[in-house]
């Protein structure tokens, strides 16, 4: 390639990814935006009427479910971080020759379908299943005790399902850290806690950042866990979108909600990136 065309090379590399994004992200986004502003019915068809009113209407109607999804996703992110960090830390620094086996164990749940995994929790934790049934028969648990159909079940389900998305990026970040840096810190009279807080933790921040995003984003839009493990009181925004779209054929309303969910996630990610630093991801 002649020298003066060199500058084109990086752009050529962008073409496959760019086309992918165009076909599977930009186009669907435009369609969704369009549908959200349409009015009509199944019989007569839908036409674009620039009905922006649907947005405030949907916010007003479904604000509690929006807020609940946000809250659940935040809790899930914090809990997966709390569980995932020690896991990733142990695998990275203490895993030794078992490292790959331990990592395989983290990924192993992915070998089964998402819905099957969630459904199995419903069976395991059934009110009178082999676990709680036995405990109730033994008089250890109250007869009315239950986990399924409570917020705890939904948050636990989400945490369980998205934990690997937290552990893997954390592991990658921690694995890269040279143990000599920690040694150097302790040589300089840092306690183990100080060494962790001043060296290991800051260096693992890219993992924390990536892990939180990979957990938070799917959690907030999830509709499986609440559907299977939850109840009316745990209804999340993803379920509302699904119900409006599939059960009620309310395409504009469902699109408007979907669009707002995406915008909200984008906004939150942007704020998070400003606070933590987006360059953490690329460092």
């Amino acid at each position: 390639m002649p020298r003066r065309w060199r500058w084109l090379i990086p752009y050529l590399f962008l073409i496959p990814g760019g086309l992918w994004l165009l076909a599977f992200f930009v186009v669907p986004m435009l369609v969704m935006a369009s549908v959200s502003l349409q009015e009509g019915s199944l019989g007569t068809g839908y036409a674009l009427t620039w009905n922006f009113g649907v947005y405030p209407e949907m916010i007003q109607q479904w604000a509690p479910q929006f807020a609940r999804s946000l809250w659940y996703a935040l809790v899930v992110t914090v809990v997966t971080l709390a569980i995932g960090y020690p896991m990733a830390y142990t695998i990275a620094f203490r895993g030794g020759r078992f490292k790959s086996i331990l990592l395989l164990l983290v990924i192993l749940p992915f070998f089964t379908a998402y819905i099957i995994r969630t459904l199995s929790w419903k069976l395991i934790l059934a009110d009178n299943g082999f676990l709680f049934g036995t405990l109730k028969d033994g008089g250890i648990l109250d007869e009315g005790f239950r986990i399924i159909a409570t917020p705890l079940a939904v948050i636990s389900g989400l945490t369980y399902n998205f934990l690997p998305f937290m552990v893997l990026p954390l592991y990658v970040a921690l694995e890269k850290i040279d143990p000599k840096l920690v040694e150097a810190a302790t040589d300089l009279y840092a306690s183990r806690v100080q060494a962790f807080l001043r060296v290991t933790l800051p260096l693992s921040m890219p993992g924390v950042f990536a892990g939180s995003l990979l957990t938070f984003i799917p959690s907030i839009g999830d509709f499986i866990n609440s559907e299977i493990l939850g109840s009316r009181a745990t209804t999340m925004i993803g379920q509302i979108i699904q119900r409006l779209f599939l059960n009620n054929n309310a395409y504009p309303e469902a699109s408007a909600l979907g669009f707002m969910l995406m915008a909200a996630v984008l906004g939150l990610v942007f704020v998070y990136a400003r606070v933590v630093g987006a360059d953490q991801l690329t460092r």
Binding site: S34, G40, G45, L48
Partner: peptide, 16 residues
């Protein structure tokens, strides 16, 4: 233009 693209995404009536 964006509005033109958005307008092109209408959903047809039943049996269209």
């Amino acid at each position: 233009t964006l509005p033109a693209i958005l307008a092109a995404c209408g959903i047809g009536p039943a049996g269209s």
